[in-house]
Amino acid sequence: MLAGCTAGGAGAFGGGEGGAGRGGDTIRVTPHDGARDVPPDGRLEVRVPSGRLESVRVRRVEDAEPAEVPGAVTPDGLRWRPGAGTRLAPAAKYAVDAVALDGHGRRSARHTTFTTLVPAHRFIGYFTPEDHATVGTGMIVSFRFNRPVRDRAAVERAVRVTADPPVEVAGHWFGADRLDLRPERYWRPGTRVTVDLRLRDVEAAPGVYGVQRRTVRFTVGRSQVSRVDAAAHTMEVRRGGRLLATLPVTAGASRTTTYNGRMVVTELFETTRMNGATVGFTDAQGKGEYDIKDVPHAMRLTDSGTFLHGNYWAEPSVFGAANVSHGCVGLRDVRGGSATSPAGWFFDRTLVGDVVEVVNSRDRKVAPDNGLGGWNMDWRRWKAGSALR
């Protein structure tokens, strides 16, 4: 089952951000979300058919040297284009974040990613977290390769993760194109982690060689682990083991339950769009069961569409009393988001890499390769997935 979220009824909306939208104020991005092998000099544009673009940010991500793509919104507010002569980097991943206003001042948001062309017979690993990031103690170093890896041992040997203070770090392969690395337990707060990539000229498959050689560093911040009890409709937020707050929540309804297990925050959005069609919730005509353009304080927990996010459309009495979502975890919020709401309070205290654990849901445990779900696998099984064992 794909996880998403909504609050039931005529005003219901839910999870699965970044999907193809419908309606007059849809934000349209070229190249399309998830596009691969985009030519570095190919067309890059963000546009709306009406209203105006409030902000557009295009940047190279998952790279040791993230870079903004220069550009500007046209005077009529309908289009954003890169600066004259701009050429994207080859073998790179880019993220587009755009916010638009319609004629009534209502905001909608769009987040998409695409990757540029990798030269023939070369491979590259797109990784998280970013260089110089400060992350939560649950961060897992994750590589996704653009081509299937046949010689997993050679590639794994070329990716070295070390920590100060020292701790054993082991890799685990999920299929032929993903390698995750983590310690046995959550990182100790304050740990400084170094990722040395020595993939250049490593032969991953017959005739396919790596192009990367760089060093990435990140720091582990304070420990924050939040425990969602789907039966009690509460979330306990603990910082360094000390209870900070118990917040009322709504989780997945009986037919669209929330995954159990430990999940890691991988993305944070002040505002994002969620469309049910992107996570498999469609009506008889194949359209999304919900489509909301301004979900506030959204924190991604799984690749399949589970978020912990602000909810302004459900009745206040729902929070702490009933589960009505399509699989996400909802915190009370207001339209546009408020720093003083439960969702805003939690969002402002959350890092990428923080852990959210769900218990007492009537669903199965989240898969270890769904987002950064590797903490749901014990250490013996985790190490058994290494090509170096």
Rank of each mutant, 00 (worst) to 15 (best):
V225R: 12
V228T: 05
A231D: 10
G240I: 05
A231I: 04
S223G: 13
V225I: 13
A230G: 03
V225H: 13
R222A: 15
H233G: 04
V237H: 01
R213F: 08
R239N: 05
G240F: 03
F218H: 05
T219G: 01
H233S: 02
V216A: 10
V216P: 11
R238T: 08
G221Y: 02
F218C: 09
A232H: 09
V228P: 10
A230H: 04
V216S: 14
A232F: 12
T215S: 11
V220Y: 00
A231C: 07
T234G: 00
S226H: 01
S226R: 05
R214M: 03
V237T: 07
R213L: 09
T215E: 06
T234M: 01
R217C: 06
V211I: 15
H233C: 13
T215K: 09
R217E: 11
R214S: 12
V228L: 08
R239C: 12
R227Y: 15
R227L: 15
A230S: 08
Q224V: 08
R222W: 14
R227H: 15
V211Q: 11
T215Y: 01
R239P: 06
G221R: 09
R217V: 00
D229M: 02
E236Q: 03
R238M: 00
Q224E: 14
Q224G: 02
T234I: 05
F218L: 07
R213H: 14
T219H: 06
G240V: 00
R222V: 15
S223M: 14
M235Q: 00
G221S: 10
E236R: 06
S223R: 15
T215I: 00
V228W: 08
R217T: 11
R213T: 12
A232Y: 07
V220T: 03
S223C: 12
D229Q: 11
Q212Y: 11
V211E: 05
R213C: 02
H233V: 11
R222K: 12
D229P: 07
A232R: 10
R213N: 14
V225M: 05
R214F: 09
Q212L: 14
S223I: 14
Q224S: 08
V225P: 04
Q224H: 13
A230K: 02
Q212N: 15
R213E: 14
S223F: 13
Q212T: 10
T219N: 07
T215P: 10
V237Q: 08
R239W: 01
A232N: 08
F218S: 04
S223H: 13
V216H: 02
V220C: 12
G221T: 13
V211W: 06
R217P: 08
G240T: 09
R217F: 04
S223D: 15
V228A: 05
V216C: 15
V225Y: 07
H233R: 11
E236N: 09
T234N: 01
F218R: 04
V211Y: 09
R213P: 07
T219V: 12
R217A: 13
G221P: 11
F218T: 00
T219L: 09
Q224R: 15
A231G: 08
A230I: 03
E236K: 04
